[in-house]
């Protein structure tokens, strides 16, 4: 049996840039550079490691998948240059403004069309930061979710991992096919090598639109979104605070401040 791994990667605006809203209250992508979400690099890394360790009857193959605008190809290229084998880009004008439920529908259809034994996601996107898509994908695909893993491995037809939860650390196990998400504790992502960057240019990138996935335009996009942002206000700049140079009494001055604010 070969092992088909699909990694879901998102193209996101650079968090160090000045992110803001467009007039329709969706993310304004024009002014900020985009990149492969740093948290999805961890997912690509784990996919490459699992593929490298795989010793089944066939080969392991890593496909990276993104749902996003034209520029999202950059994210796919980066993942390909890290070592993924091929890429799928779901791109359609009608996708503008899609919410998490819509995105999970598109991802689920695209994953099914691509064929998979294991889907690997990042823990959250760095722009939306919802951290819900892996669970939604698992629900839609009807396969187990093994999520928020700081350690992951595939042995035979089983995926195993460690989840550092709020109240406990858990060792998890599920049969393939499954949906996994990995955290930024799972291990540093590799940098693309020069060879990797050159090789990526020749790797196949398949483009799909909503028609290819049998999805009606009305089910996605701003129209199909089930959440509506009614207003977005820039947080008022914090009123400039008091800043004091420590000249030996900084701790005492701070204590007085805390008293004045009734914290002590």
């Amino acid at each position: 049996m070969s092992l088909r791994i699909v990694v879901c990667v998102k193209y996101v605006p650079d968090a160090s840039g000045d992110r803001h809203f467009a007039d329709d209250l969706t993310l304004d992508r024009d002014d900020v550079d985009g990149l492969l979400s740093e948290l999805d690099e961890y997912a690509v890394e784990q996919a490459l490691q699992i593929a490298g360790d795989y010793d089944g009857d066939g080969d392991a193959e890593v496909t990276v998948l993104t749902v996003g605008p034209e520029d999202a190809k950059d994210a796919l290229r980066k993942a390909l240059s890290m070592g993924a084998d091929k890429a799928v880009h779901v791109e359609d004008d009608d996708l503008h403004g899609t919410d998490a439920l819509g995105t999970s529908l598109v991802l689920a259809k695209a994953v099914e069309k691509t064929g998979y034994d294991l889907v690997i996601c990042g823990m959250a996107s760095t722009d939306g930061t919802m951290g819900v898509l892996p669970a939604m994908l698992s629900e839609r695909l009807g396969v187990p979710q093994v999520t928020l893993l700081s350690e992951v491995s595939v042995e035979g037809g089983t995926v195993k991992g460690r989840r550092d939860g709020d109240a406990a650390t858990e060792q998890l196990e599920a049969s393939l096919p499954a949906v996994v998400s990995v955290t930024d504790q799972s291990g540093e992502a590799r940098y693309p090598s020069f060879k990797g960057i050159m090789a990526a240019k020749k790797k196949p990138v398949e483009s799909l639109d909503l028609g290819d996935l049998d999805i009606e335009a009305g089910d996605v996009g701003l129209e199909g979104a089930w959440t509506l942002v009614e207003s977005a206000t820039e947080r008022p700049a914090r009123t400039a605070g008091t800043i004091v140079n420590d000249e030996g009494k900084g701790g005492d001055q701070l204590a007085e401040y805390l008293v004045s604010q009734k914290f002590i």
Binding site: A15, R19, H20, F21, L25, D127, A225, W226, T227, L228, V229, E230, S231, A232, T233, E234, R235
Partner: peptide, 14 residues
Amino acid sequence: SVFAAAYTTNSRIT
């Protein structure tokens, strides 16, 4: 609170 708390949004579910 979104974009690292740079914005505050009001939303509803439709």
